[in-house]
Design a protein around this nucleic acid. Structure first.
Lengths: 172, 172
DNA sequence: GGGAGATGCTTAACATGTTAAGTGAATGCG
DNA sequence: CGCATTCACTTAACATGTTAAGCATCTCCC
């Protein structure tokens, strides 16, 4: 019955060993990783009960909102890389949760849409999902949640156009 | 020579279709995911040049700071699951970047430590890594960065002890 | 002191992340 | 028209995330 949650922030640090570099557990990537994990830990069990992974759920949600989309557009929306999406779509199609047909104008493109079964599955998951989201909002505070999302967006903006070295054009 | 980076934030959204549920791209998990990806995108190329993945780098950093640690302790510090860590340690050991020896008192435990080679590798990566971190801090703002980390920590705290259903005891 | 259960770690199995290469279709340009 | 290039997507290969088993070892309690 011991609790299994991570909890790396107990006060039992072993004396003041001269810190070699910025305490690595307080780095930005780690903070983001832990925060996201804390959030996703809430959702995963429910999704799992319905036989969905987090990414599959993302795809269904995205599709439910836009009716039909090309694969590339869907990748951008669901924030998945092409190869991952390709595999997941293959599986979702095998489970009849989505449908796809190649575009007439351009044989390379394929249009993906959610199926009736997919909609039904979504309907069965959404209530729990929304309840969890509501509970998170209640615990953390709606105001603070909005602030956090605002800052996350700004962080993204700050880093946009860094690290590619070929988008130094057309910045106005 | 075409740019291959994801870049999901171009302004070509297809008109204002009536939003069915909270715009899924603005959900908390997505915000966290995108923010983290934006950050990690900066570090990955440098790590890759040195033949390290993000997780391997996390482990080396953690080890460099604490001399030696048991596997479980290391998993907690580097925020990795046991199986992942087990695999990575096997590889790092094969590359002579870490060393391990079983504890005398308890044959189950094994103590892991960074090797001389590991230290050397870290020394060759750290400068670039620090420079990138500094640039991120400069772009986003040191004050805001601290605020963000504070909020992320609070979010973690808010959700601690939710979703396990067996830690409802000893809450005081 | 011996066996049931807990513990520390590893292996297995499946799904995704990440990068590179492959494939078929569309385009541009001579 | 022909052909190199680009484009949309898929496959491949390797590394990690996630959950469940497996395997020693250790602990506790009788």
């Amino acid at each position: 019955m011991t609790k299994r949650s991570a909890d790396p922030a107990n006060g039992s640090a072993p004396a003041a060993r001269q810190v070699p570099m910025r305490d690595f557990s307080r780095s930005l990537p780690m903070s983001l990783l832990r925060a996201r994990e804390a959030v996703m830990r809430q959702f995963r069990p429910s999704l799992r009960e319905h036989g969905l992974t987090e990414q599959q759920w993302r795809i269904l949600r995205a599709l439910a909102a836009i009716e039909a989309a090309e694969v590339t557009e869907l990748a951008r929306t669901a924030f998945l890389l092409g190869p991952s999406l390709s595999r997941i779509l293959r599986d979702l199609e095998a489970r009849n949760l989505i449908e796809r047909r190649t575009a007439k104008a351009d044989q390379r493109r394929s249009m993906v849409s959610i199926s009736k079964e997919g909609v039904k599955l979504m309907a069965s998951v959404a209530p729990t999902s929304e309840a969890i989201y509501a509970e998170i909002t209640r615990r953390f505070g709606a105001r603070k949640l909005a602030e956090l999302q605002e800052m996350l967006g700004e962080l993204e903006q700050s880093l946009a156009g860094l690290g590619s070295a070929d988008e130094t054009i057309a910045e106005g």
